[in-house]
Structure formats: structure tokens, C-alpha cells
Design a protein around this nucleic acid. Structure first.
Lengths: 245, 245
DNA sequence: GGATGGTCGATTGTATACCATCCTGCAAGC
DNA sequence: GCTTGCAGGATGGTATACAATCGACCATCC
């Protein structure tokens, strides 16, 4: 066993508000497979509960079974797919209950992140600028009525909020939940106009800027819980099934 | 692509207080590898920052590289090991900061679980009995001064609390954090007598029984944050390094 | 001397072939 | 109708091979 390497990070707490270099991580087949599966799930190529066959996927993606298996393990430990030995792997089942569970935890993680950010004074101009930029992106795609991009932009906004919390552990967990929401919601036909959602983000930013944790919590809760109730699963599944042919 | 299977679970919300059958999941090599790595990490066979070489592990555990890699992917996505393509995989680095981040999130997850349990009225006699059983186990191993078993029993107690929340998504995330705590804390020489920690759990149970969410939150926070500060990393690492020879 | 560039072993990422085990669906038999 | 048994298919796993890459070492050159 080799000696441990210190791996000291000299730049441990730089200004979170302005990320800069970010070492380019080479794309491996595994990353590609993960992305492909997520993409397929959100676009309806595979529907919730569908079985995912390693060999098929390997052929479809032009790679061997090994990276596929690794990708599926990753997704399994993130709750995107479920598996039992010898019985195969299936895309996660979705249900209103499940969605509410995911969103309940997610909302609370975001509230915690916001609280820590405010406590640490990370709700100043620099941080607000990042949030506003995300909000503007949201408004932009809303104007274009691009539902898919809207979902991405929404995720980006909330991701930013989590990062401001300054707790990478929290961010990692959030990412896993966000992935599940993506799969569940996919290209969900939202229950209310996008403009209204943009407005909700505005209120959220205001609350965050004011440093009122309770108000942030309230806004977040409304924002997210309402989202949960605005989804009609049967319609979504039916639509995707048609899309797939 | 095959048709989706409903996979309806007829026993969807039985009494959480009394789990019974629990389909025996066959042990695969991957499960074994995961357990082995965790075990090795907590017992000091591998130290934080140590490189983990696939081939070595494969030989040591008597299996091929494939299941090893899958196990490592799982652990990576749970934050127990870190990896970069072609640069190998290392056991997570530990630091006080990291521990605090993990515990901050973990405490908040537990608080959320307790809140939901109380809201749902799942803090009655049946549920309290489960918690008290876990507490008694804790006292038992404390009397035997078995530090390792104590850590396990402590985890079991908090796991039970999470389960009472009735949100499996939350439980899964908690499990990932608990795993990290296990690796970080390992056989941590605790900063205070075990008897006192048992007493803290008693207070926690009382607060939970009373249904006072704020008090539960307060108890949990103290319990966990104090734990974080009672750890002397340098001592732990030094001790493990000696253990390894 | 220190920076630059190249070589080489070690390790990872991936492919391929193959096998044992287990699940699933279907048909025969009661 | 219900159970039993069987065949095909998928999964978990092994063994082996090879290309890509990293890291360390070494030679070179300014």
C-alpha cells in the first residue's frame, strides 16, 4: 500500500461568488453512459419502470458492458434506477408520493444552504449577482417557451443557491435529488405559466437579500411544494409513451 | 425495449414501527467489496488520502477487477472515495471542516425526519419502543466499553429516527452521510464518556416523545455538533498508522 | 541550476469472450 | 385451473488483452 499523499488544497476558501479555473475532467465512457441514460430518461426514451438491459444499452451506445454497468451502479446509488440481483435494473418508479419525498428533502437542503449562506454573510452584491444572472437566464428561456431549457435553468438557479451555502457535501446530495427530479419531471408540462415561476424566483432573491431566513424558507417551500402538486403524472407518462413510438 | 412492469407494492404504508419480512437480498461480490472497503477504512487498513489500487484490492479480496470497480463507483458517488480519470482512486480526505459539513447536513436531515414523524403522529408508544431498544443497545455496549460497537449502535439509533420520518429518500441520503462519518470517525476516541452520550439520547427520546420539534432540533444539534468538536484527527490518524504497521 | 522534453513502468479505462447462476415465461402434466 | 419442469435470456462474475494516460525518472539545453 503506497504512502498517503497530503493533497493539500491551498486555495481552500476562495470567494465562492467567482469560480474560475475548474480542472477539465476528461470524459470517460462511464460519464457518457450516465449522461445518456439521464437524457434518455428525461426525453422519454425509457419510461419509469422500464427495464434497462445492459447488452442493449451497450450496443446502442457503442461501448462494452463494463462502463455501462458502472454507470448503472452510480445511478442506482443515486436513486435514479433500482436494481435487485439477477432481476435486472429498472428506471425508478415515479409517483406523487415519491416526488413529494424528494422535493421535501430538496427544499430543506436548499433552506439549510440559504441559512448558512446568510449566516456567513454570503448574500451580498457578488452573490446576488450570480442569482440574478441565473434568474435572467430563466426569464430568457421562458420567453422562448423552451420547456426543456427552462427546467435546466431552474435547476441551475437552485444549484447556485446551494453553492452559496458553502457546503460541498450538501451540494452533492442536492445534485442527486435534482437528478431524480429531472427524471421524474422530465419535460413536465408545468401547471402554471413560466412567467409566474420567474416571479417566484424574484421573491426568493429578495428574501435572500434581506437575510430573512424564515422568509426564504417560506418562499422555497411554496415554490417547491406547489411545483409538486402541479404535475399530472398520467399525462406525462402518456405523452412520453406516444413520443417513443 | 420491453414494456414497463407496474411493480405495484401492495403493502405500501404498513406500520413503520414493526418491519417484518424484508426480502433477503443476495450478497453479490459488489456488496462484499463495498463492505470490505468500508471496513478497511474504519479499521485503519487504508488511511484517508491513501490510494486504492484496483488490482491489489482485487487480489486481496479474491475477485476480479470488475466488481471492485463497481464498488468503487458506488463509494465515489457517496463521497467515500474520490477519483479522477487515470489518476486513481483515493480514500476521502478528512478534516475538521469536512466533518462539520457532513454533520451539519446529517443533523438537519435528522431534524427533518423527526419533524415529519411528529407531524404524522409517529412518536407514539410503538415508535418510542424502537428508539428505546436502540438506546438500550447503546447502553449495553457502553457498559462493555466496546468503542466500535458503540459507534455502530449510535448509528443504529439515528437510523431508526430517520426511518420514523417515513421518507425513504431521506433515509438513503442519511445512509450515505453516516457512511462518511464512519470512515472519518472510525474508531474515534470520543471526547467524553459514553455514559454521557447515552444520557443525551435519553433527552432526545424525551423531546421526541413530547412532540416538541424545536427541542428535538436543539438536542440533536448539541449532540452532533459537540461530537464534531470532540475529535482529534491527528491523534486518530497517528493511531491508525501505528495499527497498520 | 532550473526549465524543457522524452522514456518507461504502472495503473486505469475499455473491449471481448466465456461461464455459472438465476429469473421469466411457457408449455406439459395433474 | 393450478402446479411443475424446462428452455431461453439476462445478469453477475472471471480472465485476458490492449490502448491511453499518468508519474517518476532522466537527459538535455538555455
Amino acid at each position: 500500500m503506497p504512502r498517503p499523499t497530503p493533497t493539500k488544497t491551498p486555495d481552500d476558501l476562495p470567494d465562492i461568488a467567482a469560480p474560475k479555473w475548474e480542472a477539465a475532467r476528461p470524459q470517460t465512457m462511464v460519464d457518457l453512459a450516465v449522461a445518456a441514460i439521464i437524457s434518455g430518461a428525461t426525453r422519454g426514451v425509457i419510461l419509469p419502470g422500464d427495464r434497462i438491459v445492459e447488452a442493449e444499452l451497450a450496443k446502442a451506445l457503442g461501448m462494452s458492458r463494463v462502463p455501462i454497468r458502472e454507470a448503472l451502479r452510480i445511478l442506482e446509488s443515486q436513486g435514479v434506477v433500482t436494481s435487485a440481483p439477477y432481476k435486472g435494473i429498472r428506471l425508478m418508479e415515479v409517483s406523487h408520493e415519491r416526488l413529494e419525498q424528494v422535493l421535501d428533502v430538496r427544499a430543506n437542503l436548499e433552506i439549510l444552504a440559504a441559512r448558512r449562506a446568510i449566516e456567513a454573510g454570503r448574500n451580498g452584491p457578488a452573490e446576488l449577482a450570480r442569482l440574478r444572472a441565473a434568474r435572467d437566464e430563466l426569464a430568457l428561456v421562458a420567453a422562448r417557451k423552451d420547456v426543456y431549457a427552462f427546467a435546466l435553468a431552474d435547476a441551475a438557479f437552485h444549484r447556485t443557491l446551494c453553492e452559496l451555502g458553502g457546503n460541498p457535501v450538501l451540494s452533492v446530495l442536492w445534485e442527486s435529488l435534482a437528478r431524480q427530479v429531472t427524471v421524474i419531471g422530465g419535460l413536465a408540462t408545468l401547471g402554471k405559466p413560466m412567467a409566474e415561476i420567474v416571479a417566484e424566483h424574484d421573491r426568493l432573491i429578495d428574501a435572500f437579500a434581506s437575510g430573512d431566513v424564515d422568509m426564504v424558507a417560506s418562499e422555497l417551500h411554496d415554490h417547491i411544494v406547489v411545483f409538486a402538486h402541479s404535475i399530472d403524472f398520467d399525462a406525462i407518462i402518456a405523452e412520453r409513451r406516444k413520443l417513443r413510438t
